[in-house]
Design a protein around this nucleic acid. Structure first.
Length: 374
RNA sequence: GGAUGGGUUCCCGAGUGGCCAAAGGGAGCAGACUGUAAAUCUGCCGUCGCAGACUUCGAUGGUUCGAAUCCAUCCCCAUCCA
C-alpha cells in the first residue's frame, strides 16, 4: 500500500544505528521508537490525550485480549480500534502469539492453531493464523503481527526448531490470509537462543517479504548479554530497508543497547506495570517510590525530567499516593515512566542524527545506576 | 452505687490448661515485575540468633508438672439501671 512506507533516513557514523520514518495512514512514526502497550485497548492509567502530550507516536494493543473482551465484532461496529479507544495515531496489534507463551498453562498448540482456555471465564477459544488475521483485520490497527510460537528460556534445540518451523509455516498462512488493505503485516523471527536457528529464521522470514519484522522470543528471562548476542547474530541477516521490531523490550538500558544493534521499534509493559506497582525510572536508575526513605523527599522524581509529574509533584507526595492506594499515584508514575522512555528515545534519535550515539550511551550509563536496574 | 460484658503481640480480632510467640485481617517494611491472566504477586512482621534461647496476652498473688486460658484481689473500659 502506498499509504505505508519505511525509510532509513540516517545512520550514526559512530555506531551504525539507524534513524528512520515509518509512514502510516494515521501518522508518521520516527524510529527508533518506543511503543507504549495498551493491551485491552487502553494504555493502563493513561488517556490518549496524555499519551500525545508525552510524545507517543504509536501504541500497541492485543488480539487475544480484545477478542475475548469486548470482541472484535463490537470494535468493528464502533468504527475500528482507533475510533473505539479515541486514539487517532498509529496502532500495532500483537497477534496473540505471546499469549501462546505467557498462558502456557491454559493452552494447547497444534499445527492448525492454538486452543486457549480464556483466562477470564475458562471458555474454550481457538486462534489460528487465519483467525488472528481476521481479528486483526476487524480491529483495524495499522500494523498487524503474524501469529507465532514464542518459546521459553531455556528450551532445547528441538523445541526451538519446532516452534520456529511452525512459526514460519504460520507466517506463510498469515501472509496468505492477510488482506492487503489499510494495514501492513510484520513477520516474526524466532529460534530461541540458537544462532543457527536465528539465522535460518531471519532468512526464511526475509524471503517471505513482510513489510517489517518482529524479533520474538527474546527477553523471556535470559541474561541481557545473551539477548544482545542474539541481536548481533540476527541483525546481519535482516533486510536493511525494513523496520525491525524487538518485541517486549524494554528497560532503559535495553532500549539503548537494542538501538546500537540495529533495532528500530520496541514495546514493553515494564514502564506502565512497574509504575502501577510503585517503581519509577530515573536518570540515576530505578527509584522504588513507595519506599520509606522517600517519605520526606520533597524533590521531583527525576531532576532531569520534563514530564507533568516531575514538574508538579514531589517524591514524598507520590509515595503518599501509593501508600494511600490512590489511583493518582499510578497515573503520575505511569505518565513519568512513559515520558522517561519516550524522551530517552528522542535523545537517542537526536544522538544518531548528530553521529554521537556511543557518546550518548556512555553518558547515560555514567549516571544510570545499573545495580538499581531491572 | 448496682448489673452485665470486656481488657491478647502497632491496630482490629481469634484463642478458655499443654499441639501458643499466640489464627485471621489491617497497618508497616522489603522484594519481584521486559510482545500485560498484574492498581498484581512474594517475603518479613516480640527480642537475640545457626540450632536454639529469652521476654509477652491489664496488674499482683495463687493453683498446677505445665497458665493468655483456672482462682483471688486490685486497676481500667463499654453498655444498661439507679
Amino acid at each position: 500500500m502506498k499509504k505505508f512506507s519505511f525509510e532509513v533516513t540516517k545512520r550514526c557514523k559512530q555506531t551504525g544505528a539507524r534513524l528512520g520514518v515509518l509512514k502510516t495512514p494515521h501518522g508518521d512514526i520516527h524510529t527508533p521508537v518506543y511503543m507504549p502497550v495498551g493491551t485491552a485497548a487502553t494504555v493502563k492509567a493513561m488517556t490518549p490525550r496524555e499519551l500525545k502530550e508525552i510524545g507517543a507516536e504509536i501504541i500497541l494493543s492485543n488480539t487475544y485480549h480484545l477478542h475475548l473482551r469486548p470482541g472484535e465484532d463490537l470494535i468493528k461496529e464502533a468504527g475500528g480500534l482507533h475510533r473505539f479507544m479515541g486514539w487517532d495515531r498509529p496502532i500495532l496489534t500483537d497477534s496473540g502469539g505471546f499469549q501462546v507463551f505467557s498462558l502456557s498453562d491454559i493452552r494447547k498448540v497444534k499445527e492448525e492453531g492454538v486452543a486457549f482456555q480464556s483466562h477470564l471465564d475458562g471458555s474454550r477459544r481457538f486462534i489460528s493464523p487465519e483467525v488472528s488475521m481476521d481479528i486483526q483485520h476487524a480491529l483495524g490497527a495499522d500494523i498487524m503481527m503474524a501469529f507465532d510460537v514464542c518459546t521459553a528460556y531455556p528450551c532445547t534445540h528441538d523445541e526451538a526448531e519446532d516452534a520456529m518451523e511452525r512459526t514460519h509455516r504460520w507466517a506463510e498462512r498469515c501472509k496468505a490470509h492477510h488482506a492487503d488493505g489499510g494495514q501492513v503485516l510484520f513477520g516474526i523471527v524466532q529460534g530461541a537462543f540458537f544462532e543457527d536457528l536465528r539465522v535460518k529464521s531471519a532468512k526464511a522470514l526475509t524471503d517471505m517479504d513482510f513489510f517489517g519484522y518482529g524479533i520474538g522470543g527474546l527477553s523471556v528471562g535470559e541474561p541481557k548479554p545473551v539477548m544482545y548476542d542474539m541481536l548481533e547474530t540476527i541483525m546481519p541477516h535482516m533486510p536493511e530497508e525494513k523496520p525491525r521490531y524487538l518485541m517486549g523490550v524494554g528497560s532503559p538500558d535495553c532500549l539503548i543497547e537494542g538501538v546500537l544493534r540495529g533495532v528500530d521499534m520496541f514495546d514493553c509493559v515494564l514502564a506502565t506495570r512497574i509504575a502501577r506497582n510503585g517503581t519509577c525510572f530515573t536518570s540515576g536508575g530505578r527509584v522504588v517510590i513507595k519506599n520509606a526513605k522517600y517519605a520526606r523527599d520533597f524533590g521531583p522524581l527525576d531532576e532531569e525530567c520534563d514530564c507533568y509529574t516531575c514538574r508538579n509533584f514531589s517524591r514524598a507526595y507520590i509515595r503518599h499516593l501509593f501508600k494511600a492506594g490512590e489511583i493518582t499515584g499510578a497515573r503520575l508514575a505511569s505518565i513519568h515512566n512513559l515520558r522517561f522512555l519516550l524522551r530517552l528515545m528522542e535523545n537517542v534519535r537526536q544522538a544518531i542524527l548528530e553521529d554521537r550515539l556511543m557518546d550518548f550511551r556512555n553518558e547515560f550509563f555514567s549516571k544510570y545506576d545499573m545495580t538499581k536496574n531491572f
